[in-house]
Design a protein around this nucleic acid. Structure first.
Lengths: 190, 190
DNA sequence: GTCTATAGAGGGATAGAC
DNA sequence: GTCTATCCCTCTATAGAC
């Protein structure tokens, strides 16, 4: 990908994160780059291309990492640890794309929309499978799998909101703490 | 509040949840009510009033409930249980307002924006206080309070996304499971 | 590769008839 | 209280000069 295009994507991702896809105009993106809106079209085909590029990029990262985890032979709890870790890693690397994936996927059109929805469903299904495996093996409590899936996934998906505060916090410490809180809870007396 | 105004708010909340504030036009809202956009202005002053009414309504609910909890004398873990329960209750009653609060508060203007940001900060500060109290009393693990605060709060704040799937699930069972997962984790062997 | 100019659609909001 | 008509603005995107 050309350099100028990368710059546009970076600036757009930042603005989309702040205000949302629909509230950001091509003029806004251009202004943030000290150029005119019309010039953007020499590098990208339109606003939709920006959106789908940003989203597909990070969605592909999640999918490929999840595929690696499911193909490994590990205890379910170890797999969940890995899922937590890849979320933290991807959040650190693609913080603004994740905001767009989470909040603006509804504005995708046509095949891109279908593709991303399918990737999301597959991802959740893989995660659900790991949890169910853990329950049937006796490593995870007999709780509704959906409650477990939802509570972990919603924490991981909104990590990006927290990325600034994290700033001073070491990534590896964050991973350890996150794994501990999500797997073992917060109580001392169990 | 007049009936017609309530209808507008309800329809708008639904549409805002689906597409976001910026992507929904006054014409969209009117169309969903089988009327013309101009007629909306006999009941509300404009799009901003819809937004701020929806958000302030639910933000006030969270604030008043949190104030009740902090004013009680209860063990910290019991207070957290109550926080989880009020989130579930408010989510059930104001599902669509919560989507707007979470995603579209950035589009508030002037004093409404300041007010909501302050309410959010106060809410988080109260929650943080409960967690710190729990840690110093030895009821909660010596983890970064921010990690605990963030992981619980992000789960609770995105409950609304999950409200449809919940459908068949009894609210009281959901509360019990949610408390168990968030406080005690998911592992069997601690 | 960036600009100016502009097309064409759609946005929020108001005026005034009924 | 709802409508039609309309104002004025901003939107995405294109055409064509440089």
């Amino acid at each position: 990908m050309k350099n100028r295009k990368k710059e546009i994507l970076k600036v757009a991702a930042y603005l989309f994160k702040e205000k949302g896809f629909s509230a950001v105009s091509m003029r806004d993106i251009a202004k943030a780059m000290d150029m005119k809106a019309a010039s953007l079209y020499n590098h990208i085909s339109g606003k939709q291309e920006i959106l789908s590029t940003l989203i597909l990029e990070v969605a592909a990262a999640f999918t490929s990492q999840m595929d690696m985890i499911t193909s490994e032979t590990l205890p379910p709890l170890k797999k969940i640890e890995k899922v937590i870790e890849i979320h933290i890693d991807i959040t650190v690397n693609y913080s603004e794309n994740i905001a767009t994936l989470n909040n603006d996927w509804v504005h995708l059109e046509g095949d891109d929309l279908k593709k991303v929805v399918k990737m999301r469903e597959d991802y959740e299904e893989n995660f659900r499978g790991i949890i169910k495996e853990g329950i049937s093996q006796g490593a995870i409590k007999q709780q509704h799998p959906e409650v477990i899936l939802f509570s972990i996934l919603s924490t991981l998906r909104t990590l990006y909101l927290w990325n600034e505060k994290r700033g001073k916090m070491d990534v590896n410490i964050l991973k350890k703490d996150m794994v501990s809180v999500l797997l073992n809870g917060i109580c001392i007396s169990n």
